[in-house]
Design a protein around this nucleic acid. Structure first.
Lengths: 122, 122
DNA sequence: CAACTGCACAACTGTTTGCTTGTGCTAGCT
DNA sequence: AGCTAGCACAAGCAAACAGTTGTGCAGTTG
C-alpha cells in the first residue's frame, strides 16, 4: 500500500495522540529495561523478573502494556509465557534517543570545561 | 566529533532514566503539536498560542519543558521570545514512530478486512 | 510616567500512572 | 487428587503531571 510519504506536515490530531501515546509507553524506565533485556532474546516473565529484580505483578503489567502497544509478542509454552520483541524498529528509536542524550551530555561537558576552568566539581 | 559506538547493550541505569525521561517529554500531545508547529520555522509564544488554541501559560510551560530537554532553543527579541527547533533529529524520531503507528494500523486493517494474511510487504 | 503587551514563574486542582497487595486460573509434579 | 509454580487481572495508595488561575517583570507605546 503505497510507499506513503510518511509525515503529513500539519500532523492530524488523532495521529498526534497515537504518536504521543507511543512515546509515553517508552517513557518508563522499567519498560525500557524490559525491552533492553529482550534484546538478548525471548524470555519468560519469571526470567525477566529475576533479571530486573522487580515484582512478578509489575513485570507482567508492563509487559501487558508493551504487548498492547505491539512492541512485544506473547507466546504460551506450557506453563510459561514467553515474550519477545515485536517490532525491532524500536531499537532504532532508542539508539537515536541515546545519541541525542549523548550529544547533550557532551555539550554540557564542553560548556563546563571551556567556560570556567576555575570551578571544577560535579 | 567522536563517532561513539552507539549503545552499550546492558543499558546502564542512569542512561535508562535519561532515555525514558526524553521519551516522556515527547509523550505529550501538546508538545508534539508545538514541535510540529515549529517545523514551519521559529515562532513566538503568542504565535504558537494562537496556532494551537491553548492558553499562554500552558504553551509557555510546555515550551519550558521542551527547552529544558534541549529540544527547542530560546531567543529574546525585544518584548517577544522566539522559539525554534533545537535538535532537528527529533523529527526522525517522530517519523519513525509515525511509521510504526501506520504499520500497526495496516495490520489491524488487514486483520479486519481479510483472513488473507498478506505476507510480508514493506 | 503611565498603561499595555508579551512572557515566565508559582500555587492549586483533578487526573493519570506506577507499584504494591490480593486473588484466581492454568499447567506440571508427587 | 492435592500441591506448587507461573502468570494475569483487580483494587488501593502515593507520586507525578497537565491544565488553570494568579501574579510579577521586562519591554513597548502614547
Amino acid at each position: 500500500m503505497s510507499d506513503s510519504p510518511p509525515v503529513p506536515h500539519p500532523l492530524p490530531e488523532p495521529l498526534i495522540e497515537l504518536v504521543a501515546q507511543r512515546f509515553r509507553v517508552l517513557g518508563e524506565p522499567m519498560r525500557i529495561k524490559l525491552l533492553d533485556r529482550l534484546r538478548e532474546g525471548e524470555a519468560t516473565v519469571s526470567e525477566l523478573q529475576r533479571s530486573l529484580g522487580a515484582s512478578q505483578q509489575n513485570v507482567s503489567k508492563h509487559l501487558g502494556i508493551l504487548h498492547a502497544a505491539g512492541m512485544v509478542s506473547r507466546s504460551k509454552h506450557g506453563n510459561h509465557t514467553r515474550y519477545a520483541i515485536g517490532d525491532p524498529a524500536i531499537f532504532d528509536l532508542c539508539d537515536q534517543v541515546c545519541g541525542g542524550v549523548r550529544r547533550q551530555l557532551q555539550e554540557l561537558d564542553t560548556i563546563l570545561q571551556g567556560d570556567q576552568p576555575a570551578a571544577a566539581s560535579a
